[in-house]
Amino acid sequence: MQADHLESRLGAVSMELDVLIYPDEVRVATPEDLRQWELETASQRSAPPAEPRLFVALYPYNPAAMSPNPDTAAEELPFVPGQIIKVFGDKDSDGFYHGESGGLSGYVASNLVAEVPVDDYDLKHLLMQQGFIPVDQTGISLSPDVSDASSIPEDGVVRRMVALFDYDPWESSPNADSESELGFHSGDIIYVLGDMDPDGFYYGDLQGRRGLVPSNFLQLLPWD
């Protein structure tokens, strides 16, 4: 009976206390500490999410066949060269980022990608919509390589166009020499070099491949 009575009295005066834990001490939180914590929490909730960084894949990667971590390969992101990947945060201790591309999300091996230093919001949005940029063996290019003057018409005009329809030269070309033409898919971004020729074709660059492209399959995509 005496023990039961003591337990009842202790229960009646029990109360919850908030404590702050530091490396060298533990102390009871004051009302001012709690107000400060509430303000910091509210600020974190209202802060906009960090903008993703853009990376481009330099090499093909199939996690199922190439992952160094077979047990977690299903959590990694597959990609092909030139593919744009949105990366969130820094890489982890294993050298992986967390990213999104093509409607998929997963871990991204940092040694297979390179960051695209884009600060302009509109250009960043356009690249994310486009999904790919040309990649060669030496680095990254956000526009066609115009250093080869022999392959560019004299006026040197470069336009950016988007494909409205799929085009397979072997099936749809009106020309006998279709090997000089580029095949492409609807939505591809093609950099057109110079003006249209008498047959209604442009000379274009698609992810580093160059050839003739039919003008009636393309629509101008302004730079800004």
Rank of each mutant, 00 (worst) to 15 (best):
9 R>I: 14
9 R>F: 10
11 G>I: 03
11 G>K: 13
11 G>E: 14
13 V>W: 00
13 V>T: 09
14 S>D: 10
16 E>T: 14
16 E>R: 14
17 L>W: 06
17 L>F: 05
18 D>A: 13
18 D>V: 12
19 V>H: 08
19 V>I: 12
20 L>I: 12
20 L>C: 11
20 L>W: 01
21 I>L: 13
23 P>G: 02
25 E>H: 13
25 E>T: 13
25 E>S: 15
26 V>M: 10
26 V>N: 03
27 R>W: 02
27 R>Y: 03
28 V>K: 09
28 V>I: 12
29 A>T: 07
30 T>P: 06
31 P>F: 11
31 P>W: 08
34 L>E: 11
34 L>T: 09
35 R>S: 08
36 Q>V: 12
36 Q>C: 05
36 Q>H: 09
36 Q>D: 05
37 W>M: 12
37 W>Q: 14
39 L>H: 09
39 L>T: 08
39 L>R: 11
41 T>F: 05
41 T>G: 08
43 S>F: 10
44 Q>D: 09
44 Q>S: 06
45 R>H: 12
46 S>H: 09
46 S>K: 11
46 S>F: 07
47 A>S: 11
52 P>E: 07
53 R>W: 04
53 R>T: 08
53 R>H: 05
55 F>M: 10
55 F>R: 03
58 L>G: 01
59 Y>D: 13
59 Y>S: 13
59 Y>T: 15
59 Y>M: 13
60 P>E: 12
61 Y>E: 04
62 N>F: 05
64 A>C: 00
65 A>F: 01
66 M>T: 02
68 P>Q: 07
69 N>V: 10
70 P>Y: 00
70 P>A: 04
71 D>S: 10
71 D>M: 11
72 T>V: 13
74 A>H: 13
74 A>I: 05
76 E>M: 08
77 L>C: 00
77 L>T: 02
77 L>P: 01
77 L>I: 04
78 P>G: 05
78 P>H: 07
80 V>H: 02
80 V>L: 11
81 P>L: 00
82 G>K: 03
83 Q>V: 01
84 I>S: 00
84 I>W: 01
85 I>R: 02
85 I>W: 01
88 F>D: 05
92 D>N: 15
92 D>Q: 01
93 S>V: 15
93 S>E: 15
93 S>G: 12
95 G>V: 11
96 F>V: 08
98 H>V: 02
98 H>L: 01
98 H>A: 00
98 H>W: 07
100 E>K: 03
101 S>N: 00
102 G>C: 01
102 G>T: 02
107 Y>C: 04
108 V>G: 01
108 V>N: 00
110 S>D: 10
115 E>K: 02
116 V>W: 01
118 V>Q: 07
118 V>H: 05
118 V>A: 10
119 D>A: 15
120 D>S: 15
121 Y>Q: 15
121 Y>W: 13
122 D>Y: 14
122 D>I: 15
124 K>E: 10
126 L>S: 12
127 L>E: 06
127 L>Q: 04
128 M>P: 04
128 M>W: 06
128 M>N: 04
130 Q>M: 11
131 G>S: 01
133 I>C: 14
134 P>W: 02
134 P>V: 00
